[in-house]
Design a binder for these strands. Structure first.
Lengths: 236, 236
DNA sequence: AAGTGGTCTAGACCACTTG
DNA sequence: AAGTGGTCTAGACCACTTT
């Protein structure tokens, strides 16, 4: 299982900031020399990280650390698409930003003990000019020290891109649970809905490496014109 | 791209019935001889088919053609799980079986031209003794010739297992679109729901090899005690 | 003991990108 | 032309299962 150790060290390089998002890795021959393994073994480790979108290979150019930019966010983590026609990147507007102690649900989802504090961020996402999604995000304050509304708002990339660029936290996977509910008054108002309107409620736990939970997000979605799309191919 | 050709031939063996579900493949050395490639190339082709759950490897025993049995169905194609606690295989009861010409939606989903006929199968799925899911299935009559309600009901495996065992059609992937709706009268009655109750509506197109559509299924789910669960790791 | 898949190696050659 | 990743080969050795 040499390739596992190589993979582990590559992940460590990313987590430590030694390999920054967007930067090129050494070529495969050099990596093989560094780790004292054959090129084939390096390739196997890199193969897996490429499959997980952590690394990105380009023939003739090199291997790069994946950035959580709009493109990657759209195809890996944004599953709301119009009933017909192509997907579109949402226009995100901050609605609330606060810090308080974690609810029991949040603590459980984030793996916190007792009552540690969390940042709570609420966004309204617009698609085709209309409010469609009400996001409520909770992240552990201890994991994102010194986060401020100003810094958060001033980000020039996606939310996950900000976690990555400002805190070295790379979101690599997420679990979601989806159900149908009637819109709560607050969400109904934000989405211009009648409270008797059915909406999707999506609970997401997003993880960084080693399945360490980093974010708990609840999304309320108006699915009159949009769907939650999912593809089943290589379940795990 | 030799390994692509090897993969293609292995798929052909499965589709032609030469390699039956559950049966063992020749060992890797023999496959390499047969295809005139190295063992490494065979391994790469098999690697991909294993990742797609089409083949199943067991160290020391051999490589086998995957069967669409309950276990595989549950972890690859059944995404409804109780809010808390472990998943459970549903108790499936036939509600309707008929044959008529395809609606425009069905024809589009199944890639049919004009008005070809389809079998329509409706099931009610019970979990923990209660009706939770109302499934409406449409499959092209031309693809499943001679299907009868008696044969369908007498199956001893999953629905996808029946497609595979009786027609040599292996479902390998599926796309789903999920939204929130109010229960229609028929579904509400079958699921013991008030018509004002919100339910999940899931539209699924299931594909066999080469992304050829084989089934169009609409599922209505009562999500008061169950969720639609999804894991995002290796998007495609 | 014999047979299977699992890991690792060392190297050749090809395809693509860049200067 | 030089440097990168992509494919393929041939073989050694290990881990597991069955007889």
């Amino acid at each position: 299982m040499l390739y596992r150790q190589v993979k582990r060290q590559l992940i460590n390089d990313i987590q430590s900031g030694l390999a920054a998002p967007g930067a090129a890795l050494p070529n495969e021959k050099d990596l093989a020399l560094r780790f004292n393994v054959s090129v084939g073994t390096v390739r196997r480790a890199v193969d897996e990280l490429v499959a997980e979108h952590v690394l990105l290979r380009q023939q003739g150019r090199g291997t790069f650390v994946g950035k959580l930019d709009r493109e990657r966010f759209m195809f890996q983590f944004f599953k709301i698409a119009p009933r017909t026609g192509p997907s579109e990147f949402p226009d995100v507007r901050l609605h609330k930003f606060s810090k308080s102690s974690a609810s029991r649900t949040e603590a459980q989802a984030l793996g916190l003990h007792g009552t540690q504090s969390v940042f709570r961020i609420e966004n309204v996402l617009y698609l085709k000019g209309r409010p469609v999604i009400h996001d409520q995000i909770a992240i552990a304050a201890a994991m994102f020290p010194g986060l401020t509304q100003a810094a958060f708002t001033a980000r020039t990339t996606t939310i996950y891109g900000h976690y990555q660029a400002a805190y070295g936290i790379t979101i690599v996977e997420a679990d979601e649970r989806v159900r149908a509910e009637l819109a709560k008054p607050e969400s109904a108002q934000l989405l211009n809905l009648d409270p008797a309107n059915p909406v999707l409620c999506i609970e997401r736990v997003a993880y960084t490496f080693d399945r360490k939970p980093a974010e708990f997000r609840t999304s309320i979605v108006d699915t009159r014109d949009f769907d939650y799309v999912s593809r089943m191919r290589e379940a795990a």
